[in-house]
Design a protein around this nucleic acid. Structure first.
Lengths: 108, 108
DNA sequence: CACCTCCACAACCGAGTGCTTGTGCTAGCG
DNA sequence: CGCTAGCACAAGCACTCGGTTGTGGAGGTG
């Protein structure tokens, strides 16, 4: 049976959140542990406002947690299952690359 | 160690392809087997050009295969692993919903 | 209290994208 | 050969979105 329309929208919205390189990089940095906005900003070399904006989107999607510690704000991964998604995607990319190489390796 | 920049872009691009409701619906329809553009168009109630365009994007990402059969073009899922991704996302959505309900079910 | 740090929110702009309209091309059919 | 069906490509338009700039507020520090 086909998926319901609202569920389709939710799934698409979730994928769209992960469809930005900077957000992928933020999640990848938070993979090693919690970090403040300043630390992430320095690690990425981006503006503070931009980093904060993307972190807000990730927080709105429930993928990261926000906690105030002193004057700083600490972000952390909510659920490690996000990395399973990235792992599957990386696996798919590797598979396509190997297919490409096997084709290029045997010219007509 | 952090992910390399080109890999981050590839992963984000892949997620972005799945970040459109209509493409999710197309993959969901193809889940039951191969189908022509006209069949998918009728099932979705969308324009033929729009369906063809999204199918082209899915084909460019290597997620569906294209084959000409008579005057029609038949599309099919390339790799079933795409559905594992959707399953994980749906699982995450269900988890968040249950968390929301558990919070709303216990008012302060 | 004055000052600075750290961060989030809002407005703006340029680029990307989804959808529509229009068109051309290929394959079957009488 | 003329005609239709089925599909992909291209241009145009409206919308979304990512990035920058500007600003305000919360929380330490002297």
């Amino acid at each position: 049976m086909p998926l319901s329309e609202p569920l389709v929208d939710l799934v698409a919205q979730r994928f769209r959140v992960l469809g930005e390189p900077m957000r992928i990089r933020l999640l990848d940095l938070l993979r090693e542990g919690e970090a403040t906005v300043g630390e992430l900003q320095q690690a990425l070399g981006a503006s503070q406002q931009n980093v904060s904006k993307h972190l807000g989107i990730l927080h709105g999607a429930g993928m990261v947690t926000r906690a105030k510690r002193g004057t700083s704000v600490v972000y952390a991964i909510t659920d490690d299952s996000v990395f399973d998604l990235c792992e599957q995607v990386c696996g798919g990319i590797r598979r396509q690359l190997s297919d490409m190489e096997s084709i290029l390796g045997q010219p007509s």
